[in-house]
């Protein structure tokens, strides 16, 4: 096993994840924590929170299918072992975000219909581009699509959500902190493992860059439609957060320069898109892939 891959062993994963930051958690948060009344009692916020959580489940289901599907295509035991831990991480994310839907009042019998109703079609297309590569057993494109593009997007989205809810929803903020720690590890593996494979197979660059461009397009389209739908809920959330702040609650944070207490949906869409795309450029550059700017959706 090469040196860096030994850092991605199951032994290390066991010590850092289930026996580390997940110890004493239940569905990713401290036992007993609940969704706040300001979400559960406000129909506008509740509907928007369910819609947002649906996108998280859809994204994590894609990540579960991709990481498990890539195990057979992995060229060595160490990569298979890492992808096995990632598979379980993604399954856990599916489980905890699904549990959140139940906590928000979605009935178990209505889970699939709720997902089908609210899944963003652009996010579904994003997933299809990736899973097509996985189905072909294309390890290089699959890992770039999964561990750089999908995980890079998820990482920034989770960070933004965590900043937005940290003062008002400790349960969800805790859930997100565990997933962010997982995503950081996944992105690290993608950069480390694929860099050497791209060097060995430079002929694969063009195909991988085409996939990245296509995925980035569907990602931006997803952000656009999500923020367009969330306008009234964001305003409602900001109004309630300000009221809670007056009662001693923590003030909403800033995220990448955006004041979450006052930012409009358009501003937040711009900040999130810029943040994710900048990350893509840096991470793709590290593995020898040239970032391709997608068309504006």
């Amino acid at each position: 096993m090469s040196g860096f891959l030994s850092a991605y062993s199951i032994q290390n994963w066991l010590e850092s994840c289930p026996q580390g930051y997940l110890e004493d958690t239940q569905y990713g948060h401290a036992p007993g924590q609940t969704e706040p009344a300001l979400v559960l009692d406000n129909p506008t916020l509740l509907a928007d929170t369910i819609r947002t959580t649906v996108q998280l489940v859809v994204g994590e289901r894609c990540a579960l299918a991709a990481s498990s599907g890539l195990i057979n295509a992995a060229p060595d035991h160490a990569s298979k072992a890492f992808l096995a831990t990632q598979t379980l991480d993604e399954a856990r994310h599916v489980e905890i975000f699904t549990q959140r839907l139940y906590d928000l009042g979605v009935k178990k019998s209505e889970l699939e219909s709720t997902l089908a109703e609210h899944a963003n079609p652009n996010l579904v297309k994003f997933a299809e581009v990736l899973l097509e590569k996985v189905d072909k057993g294309d390890f290089i494109a699959g890992v770039v699509g999964q561990n750089i593009v999908l995980e890079g997007m998820a990482f920034s989205v989770f960070e933004m959500l965590q900043a937005a809810v940290s003062g008002v929803n400790p349960k969800f903020a805790n859930t997100l902190s565990g997933t962010i720690a997982d995503e950081r590890r996944h992105v690290g593996f993608g950069e480390n493992r694929i860099g050497s494979l791209i060097k060995q197979h430079p002929e694969r660059k063009a195909d991988v860059e085409k996939m990245q461009k296509e995925m980035a397009y569907h990602m931006l389209a997803t952000f656009s439609t999500q923020f367009a739908q969330s306008g009234s809920a964001m305003q409602e959330g900001q109004r309630m957060a300000q009221a809670a702040e007056g009662n001693g609650a923590e003030a909403p944070a800033k995220w990448h320069g955006a004041d979450l207490a006052t930012a409009t949906p358009e501003e937040m869409e711009g900040v999130l898109s810029d943040t994710v795309l900048k990350e893509f450029k840096v991470r793709l550059g590290r593995i020898g892939i040239e970032y391709q700017t997608p068309a504006a959706p």
């Binding site: 579960l64 299918a65 498990s68 599907g69 195990i71 096995a84 598979t87 399954a91 599916v94």
Partner: peptide, 23 residues
């Protein structure tokens, strides 16, 4: 790992994910 994609329900997918790590 290959069976997760076509497992018939969510609980089977999640169980198989735990089996993947076991294996």
């Amino acid at each position: 790992s290959g069976m997760i994609r076509f497992a018939p329900n969510r609980r089977a997918k999640i169980f198989l994910a735990t089996q993947v790590v076991d294996e």
